[in-house]
Design a protein around this nucleic acid. Structure first.
Length: 885
DNA sequence: ATCTCATCGTAC
DNA sequence: GACGTACGATGAGATA
């Protein structure tokens, strides 16, 4: 397409069309008009674009003829408020709107089209109104109806459309009149007549000159009667092309839409598809970040930091692994938009500089009078601790703030937060260091690039702090931040740095033994199946079990509705006497343990320390629990004997012992405290078996007469309460009928009514405020409670109860960890906290510290809070983890 | 070759 | 549809 095109849209024509065409959504005209506009831009990609509006002022036509459009109804009530929204939308797209008091959109279109054509730009009138056809001129001014898909109706198409020559359109329309605009035409002359007379006499003037030649009486009378009004009609019909408007390319050239504004606008109007179709456009302002590579400048900035008492820092290293990471540089930010990068050990840097710069930075980091802030501070301080640096004083963490504000969110990374909260696209790591096999370590990144990247990170962290810290206070999350999460950061850094020793030889031996067992099981399974197949493939296994062998289908998987082959299914099949499922269960257990633990753990041993350094993640679990990965040390087996053996591979260093303690029934104790239920409270206070006690209560028998089955039922209900278990699940778990399960639960609540009351109160409060708050003030939003979906609502109710209990338990053990760490350091003990497994802490210490550490551990854990019921920690020691049970 | 999703199973 | 929170191994299919 060689010629530039100027599309002019008649706003109201399309607004009304959308309004009447689209039903059942709010702001239908806004939606329809937006869709039309998007399609127009996408399909036609016009070089120039304008949208013409009518104004509410009287037009010159109304002045000439007061009856003009007098028959029009007022604009529909629901359309009125949509007009400003449409204008807002058009502004968002950066499309010029043109309106002129006294004139109609048609006149604006006529004038602009003519002016554009005069400048050699093709004018395209976006309208379906036949009146506009009078404006069409050769290929210079054409019409386009996006709805009918009539593309470019040019002059050549007019005879076919109207049955007259282009220059006769105005006369033709004048004869017809326009009933919609209340303009009288010529009575007694219809479409056929009008065309016939115009063809015969050339024009209206021609017709009047030859009026006596018209023989049809009605037509002739009509023309006679219209003689006085026809000039006015013609004036009204004629679209003006002489308005005081110019077409200049700069004004009408297509501009970049304001994607962020539009996105917010579409979000506000709940136009989901349009929100998705409008990705945010992110700013990328390059700031002038400074490289600090002289002692003099560095000292100046550090003096400023001391003066302010607050700064943001971010280290650059050679690895994400904190043990292996070498320090390459440090970025500092002293205020928004002011950040620096101190290159310490980039390739080719002078060691004298590195040493002196590091000494200066160390001083500031160790200064307890200066508050530091970082994004994910645990990483930075872990690396620095490993290098022997001290990072002291208050350490703020913007990642932590983000997590506390929205624990349901799983992305708290700086790049993501910068986009979400600052509408800013940061320089990403791979943009400076590459990715995949092209990736270089940060010390190889040129200083100017490194400075831009690193200083920006510090700057962005500063900006996030400015936003998140006030929010933290506003949302009353300051307490949990200050008393639990923030002090935990250095504790976790030390735990991760300590790592734990694994007996590699032991696991290797175990692995070999298991391999033999697995091999034998495989053969037995192939034999029973009658063929070899991939046993680990649930798909293949399903075919063997349920198609080839014709075993009864027990259940289907939830997502794909394929055959389920999980443990409960295999157990059911096994109980029916089939040999294969039993073998499969055994096979599954062996392979699970071998691949997930026995073989995996040795590969995680750090070559540098010879220990396994798992990560303890603070920002993952929505309830406030920690999580562990690389490897996950919070799901090491314990329930089966074979699984438990894996724990024997976790050993203390030579001459040291493990000291471990776990909270006894902490979640149920919290339930007792929160509900104040007498049976539970008394049970825990007296130190008796709580499940036995509740069983006695439910079954109405003496505690001493409670059978194992009765205890098992009570235990299931006790645990189920914490998770919000229903009768279906209880029935399944206990192998009883639903009716029986319901009876148990009803009796439970009758005997322990405050447990039910507590649950209801928690849910009611959560529903009222839309979130749940734990004991220490952590919150978790529960949008499920506001759902109209009953299942989602029920889930919200379970989350409310569970988050309160699980979250509070998590806070209690976190506080224990903080106090323990503090005590160990104060008392100069060598003991090290190694693991946290939700209700258990594992330490190692020299043999001679065993007693003092045991006592310290137990007392610290038990005295975190003083509730209606005591917290009990059971402390054990051993020469491996398995022995501490 | 690398990713994402589904299924399964381990812990508390 | 029915019990909360995690992580990870494996297979299978999509994407590059």
């Amino acid at each position: 397409m060689t010629r530039e095109r100027f599309f002019i849209v008649d706003a109201f024509a399309h607004i009304f069309r959308s309004f009447y065409a689209i039903r059942n959504i709010d702001n239908n005209a806004v939606y329809g008009f937006t869709m039309m506009l998007r399609k127009l831009i996408a399909d036609e990609n016009p070089e120039y674009l304008a949208i013409a509006f009518d104004t509410s002022e009287p037009t010159f036509r109304k002045e000439l003829y007061p009856e003009y459009k007098a028959n029009r109804d007022a604009m529909p009530e629901s359309l009125v408020p949509q007009i400003p929204l449409i204008k807002e939308m058009i502004e968002g797209y950066n499309i010029p709107m043109v309106a002129m008091p006294g004139f109609e959109a048609d006149d604006i279109i006529g004038t602009l089209a003519k002016r554009a054509a005069e400048q050699g730009v093709q004018a395209v009138i976006v309208s379906g109104d036949k009146d506009m056809l009078q404006l069409v001129q050769g290929d210079d001014i054409v019409m386009f109806d996006p709805k009918k898909g009539v593309h470019y109706l040019g002059e050549a198409g007019i005879p076919e459309f109207f049955g007259c020559r282009p220059n006769q359109i105005i006369d033709l329309l004048s004869i017809w009149g326009d009933s919609a605009d209340n303009i009288p035409g010529v009575k007694g002359v219809g479409e056929k007549g009008a065309k016939k007379y115009l063809a015969e006499y050339g024009s209206l003037d021609g017709i009047y000159e030859n009026l006596d030649k018209i023989t049809a009486k009605r037509a002739r009378t009509g023309f006679e009667e219209a003689r006085e009004t026809i000039d006015l009609t013609k004036t009204l019909i004629t679209i003006r092309t002489d308005l005081d408007l110019t077409f200049d390319k700069d004004t009408y050239v297509r501009k970049e839409p304001d994607a962020n504004g539009l996105r917010a606008f579409f979000t506000r109007l709940d136009f989901k598809s349009l929100v998705d179709a409008t990705p945010p456009k992110l700013k990328r302002i390059s700031r002038d970040y400074q490289l600090l590579d002289t002692e003099e400048r560095l000292k100046e900035v550090l003096a400023e930091i001391r003066d302010k008492g607050f700064f943001v820092f971010d280290i650059e290293t050679t690895s994400l692994n904190t043990i292996e990471a070498e320090l390459v540089g440090m970025a500092l930010a002293t205020e928004v938009n002011q950040a620096y990068y101190v290159p310490l050990r980039h390739e080719g840097q002078d060691a004298t500089w590195s040493d002196s710069a590091e000494a200066l930075l160390k001083d500031v980091l160790a200064d307890t009078n200066i508050i530091k802030c970082a994004h994910n501070a645990k990483y930075d301080i872990s690396v620095l601790f490993n290098l022997g640096w001290d990072v002291a004083g208050r350490i703020e963490d913007t990642m932590l703030m983000s997590y506390l504000i929205n624990p349901n969110e799983d992305r708290h990374g700086m790049d993501h937060l910068a986009e979400k909260l600052l509408n800013y696209r940061t320089i990403h790591f791979d943009e400076v260091a590459g990715s995949g096999k092209d990736m270089v370590t940060f010390d190889k990144v040129p200083l100017d690039k490194a400075c831009n990247y690193a200083a920006e990170d510090a700057d962005i962290t500063f900006q996030l702090y400015d936003i998140l810290f006030p929010r933290l206070k506003e949302q009353d999350l300051h307490r949990v931040y200050d008393t639990v999460e923030r002090p935990l950061i250095p504790v976790l850094a030390r735990v991760e740095n300590s790592g734990v020793q694994i007996d590699e030889g032991y696991l290797k031996t175990m692995s070999a033994k298991m391999a033999e067992e697995i091999e034998a099981l495989e053969q037995a399974i192939y034999e029973l199946a009658g063929e070899e197949f991939n046993i680990k493939s649930t798909k293949q296994l399903g075919v063997i079990l349920f198609e080839k062998l014709g075993l009864p289908t027990v259940k289907k998987t939830s997502k794909t509705k394929s055959y389920s082959t999980d443990q409960s299914v295999l157990e059911t099949l096994s109980a029916k006497g089939h040999a294969l499922p039993a073998k499969l269960l055994e096979y599954r257990m062996f392979t699970k343990l071998k691949s997930t633990y026995v073989d995996a753990l040795p590969t995680m041993i750090c070559p540098k320390t010879g220990r396994v350094h798992s990560s303890f993640n603070q920002f993952v679990a929505a309830t406030g629990r920690l999580s562990s990965n690389n490897p996950n040390l919070q799901n090491i087996p314990i329930r089966t004997e074979m699984g438990r053996d894996i724990r024997a591979a976790f050993v203390p260093r030579d001459g040291w012992v493990f000291v471990a303690a776990d909270y006894s029934q902490i979640e149920l104790r919290l339930m007792a405290h929160f509900s104040g239920d007498d049976t539970l409270v008394q049970g825990f206070r007296s130190g008796e078996d709580i499940h036995r006690r509740t069983a006695g209560e439910i079954m109405d028998v003496d505690v001493n007469l409670v059978t194992d089955d009765m205890r098992r039922a009570a235990k299931s209900i006790n645990f189920g309460l914490i998770y919000g278990m229903g009768e279906f699940r209880l029935a399944q778990e206990l192998g009883i009928t639903r009716k029986k399960a319901r009876e148990y639960m009803e009796t439970y609540f009758e005997k322990m009514p405050r447990v039910l009351g507590f649950r209801d109160e928690v849910i009611e409060k959560a529903r009222e405020i839309g979130e749940i708050r734990t004991y220490f003030g952590r919150h978790r939003q529960l949008p499920e409670l506001a759902s109209r979906n009953k299942n989602l609502q029920a889930q919200g109710e379970r989350l409310a109860v569970n988050t309160l209990i699980q979250g509070t338990a998590a806070e209690i053990i976190k506080i224990a960890m903080i106090r323990l760490d503090e005590a160990i350091r104060e008392q100069d003990l060598q003991a090290k906290l190694l693991l946290q497994v939700h209700d258990e802490l594992v330490l190692e210490c020299p043999e001679e510290e065993k007693e003092v550490v045991s006592r310290l551990l137990g007392e610290t854990m038990e005295h975190v809070v003083h509730f209606e019921v005591p917290l009990v920690a059971e402390v054990r020691t051993g020469t491996n983890w398995k022995e501490t049970k």
